[in-house]
Amino acid sequence: MSKLLLKIEGLRAQIDNKEIIKGVDLEVHAGEIHIIMGPNGAGKSTLAYTLMGHPNYKVLGGHAYLEGENLLEMKVDERAKKGLFLSFQYPEVIPGVTVENFLRTAKNAVDSKKQSIVAFNMLLKEKMATLGIDESYAKRYLNQGFSGGEKKKNEILQMKILNPKVAILDETDSGLDVDAIRVVAEGVNQFANKDNAMIIITHYKKLLDYIKPDYVHILKDGQIIQTGDIGLAATIDEEGFAGVNTN
């Protein structure tokens, strides 16, 4: 089996004094694509935010390791530097900070080395082209005035540039039209390789027309209640989450 990248053991977490994640176990190896599905309020986004270290989400118990290192003890930026990436469902708008300036700062931080502006801009241009993002976006303020689809593409662009080991995509496909979903999916497929891994949180099966996952997990009431292959997603599509065997 390939290298173990992310290991989650008995993770429990709460927000606003309410326990949402009630013991999650998950192992993600290099080269794998995992899908997490589940009904509203199951804790999908909470799991993503907890792993990334959002200050409002408090860990109650359990462990999470990225390549053997304790994630839960790290600050948010340290997690990113270790190779964890989260594509936000609702990316923040940062007025006055250009996409280019932001991404260069982030890239330098994650790689711990200063890249020349020229070299970086070439990389940025190339990655933008693969996602069909117009060059002018580099000079625009981060997510300001971006449409829903543009924000999501921008998240995928960041993922491609920062080149994480484990990328979590939190409902990156929600609210997108079919064309945008295809662009996002292509971005994911281009990025995925034998050395990295992805966890894709989604509500809809549509994305699975373009992405071939290795595992599909069903998260319900803060726990993974079933794990299967792509066939599981098909079951859900036909019967809804109620059809999932909870025993």
Binding site: K75, D77, G96, T105, Y141
Partner: peptide, 24 residues
């Protein structure tokens, strides 16, 4: 949080947001 999730330190994230605030 968003900026830090991209590897930028807390101090730099704050400075960046403030610089963006005064950018206009």
């Amino acid at each position: 949080f968003y900026l830090m999730s991209r590897g930028i330190s807390e101090v730099e994230a704050k400075a960046m947001i403030v610089r963006g605030f005064v950018e206009p």
